Amino acid sequence: MTCFLILVPLAVGPAACGSDDKTQDAAPHDATAHVVLSIDEESRAADPDKPLEITARDDHRITDVRAVDAAGRRLTGELSADGTRWRSATPPAGATRYTVVVGTERGDGTPGRRTAEFTTRPAGGKKLTVDLGPENGTYGVGRPLTAELDQAIRSREQRAIVERALKVESTPAVEGSWRWMDDRTLHYRPRTYWPAHATITVRGALKGLWIRDGLRGAAVEPVRIRTGDRIEAVVDVAETRMTVRKNDKVLRTIPVTTGKPGFRTREGIKVVLGKQAAVRMTGTSIGIPEGSPESYDLPVEWATQLTDSGEFVHAAPWSAEYHGRENVSHGCTGMSTENARWFFETVRPGDIVRYVGGEGERMPVFGNGLGDWNLSWKEWREGSALHGTGA
């Protein structure tokens, strides 16, 4: 015999919105006998290679299903039109404990509920390894987050599974999105630069997660970074001048020289990648043949790197007469030794250097450093598998 309690509200005035349907106030009855899960009921174990299926019987229909694992990951699914069957969109994670709450309804509208727990068996197959970046530390407000995968993920559906499992939190909170840069690389940035002195944490809830047949997620090491002051340098190429600001206050204006015809400095927003107090620079490293009139081999001081291809901000005492007057370099931004040292000591990886007013090609978004900020927010989100095409 099944019992249930009818809750009768106390009358506190005229019943303007009264109803004769008492079932809407009924506490859910135990529907365990009327809801069947595709698990071994005795061992409470489930096959991680098959979707979870839930079936209602005996004049019951399913109204809602919530299946969540210990990490808070929800197993989504689809309910049949007649409400008798629910099936998860993907298999559950391997070696993972789940709690499932199934809401039901009888033919007379009486609500029911079944709560069940089960653990999936360990899953076989390959493991998707994800390395998050950058390393823990303090960076400038332009530093994107990165996720490097050891397996190619090409379909939008699989990309959405991976992307959804990569969780980013920041204090203060800001709007942000992942973007697929290629089949194995994602970058994450906010709509605008990170706030100064923010704390950002990225985690991967991928362990055991089904991505495709034969591929499951591996555990991911989390990353936590902070941002420093907002440092932004703007180089006006036509005016041969750099203006450096800290938290929107001008710190210094510096005469510079940038790339000459044939070696124009790229336009757009770049992010500081790293710094070297002393480095040897050669023409052959950027494709200039040895012995060419343009060939060079120089010891360079106070070099701040902006691109993988070799654009730096550095001391260039050999071109001092052109600083603030003419662009004569092979693509780097040259300045006096004193100014180069000051810039080197002022900026950190992740700070922003923006080039305007020149004739160089546009800084690419991916493949030559961190060009992430050269897309509008709409364009950026289009590369997300959750918000756009994911391509």
Rank of each mutant, 00 (worst) to 15 (best):
D49F: 03
P144R: 14
G133S: 07
P111L: 01
R121P: 01
G103E: 08
T84F: 01
D58K: 10
A147V: 06
V65H: 01
T146E: 14
D82H: 09
G77K: 08
G77A: 05
I54H: 02
A71G: 03
R106N: 01
T84D: 07
T63F: 00
R74I: 14
G83S: 15
R61T: 01
H60G: 00
R73S: 13
V101C: 02
G133L: 03
R121I: 05
R57K: 15
R143L: 14
N136V: 11
T146M: 10
P122G: 02
G94M: 03
T99M: 11
A89Q: 14
A46I: 06
W86H: 10
R113V: 07
P134W: 10
L128A: 10
D59A: 15
P92E: 13
R57L: 10
P51C: 07
E117F: 03
I54K: 02
N136R: 15
R66M: 11
E41Y: 08
G140S: 11
D40A: 12
A70H: 07
P51H: 04
A46F: 01
S80P: 07
A89F: 01
G124V: 06
D49W: 06
S80G: 10
L132F: 09
A56N: 10
L145I: 07
A70F: 04
S43N: 04
V130H: 11
A123W: 06
A46H: 04
A46D: 04
Y98W: 15
D82Q: 06
P91C: 06
R44F: 07
D58E: 12
G124R: 05
R85T: 15
G124T: 14
R73D: 12
A45F: 05
A56C: 09
V68C: 03
V36P: 00
V130N: 09
S80E: 04
V100W: 04
T90Y: 09
T84Y: 04
G140E: 11
R114F: 01
S43E: 06
T90R: 15
T63D: 03
T96A: 10
L145P: 10
R61W: 02
T90E: 09
E53S: 12
A70V: 13
D47C: 13
N136I: 04
S80C: 06
P134Y: 06
R97P: 01
K126F: 04
R57M: 07
A123P: 09
T84R: 15
L52H: 05
D64W: 00
D82F: 06
G112K: 04
P92M: 12
K127A: 15
P48D: 06
R97L: 09
G140Y: 08
E78Y: 08
P51G: 05
K126N: 13
T84C: 10
R73C: 14
L75Q: 11
V130W: 05
T120V: 09
D59W: 04
S80T: 14
V36A: 15
L145F: 08
D108Q: 03
D59L: 13
R61Y: 00
V101M: 02
E42I: 12
T120N: 08
L145V: 04
P48S: 11
A45I: 13
T99Q: 13
K126Q: 09
S43L: 14
E53N: 02
L132Q: 07
A81M: 09
L37M: 10
R44D: 02
D40C: 13
G107A: 13
P144M: 12
E42A: 12
A89R: 15
T76A: 13
S88R: 05
E117C: 08
Y98E: 14
L75F: 03
A45G: 02
G103R: 00
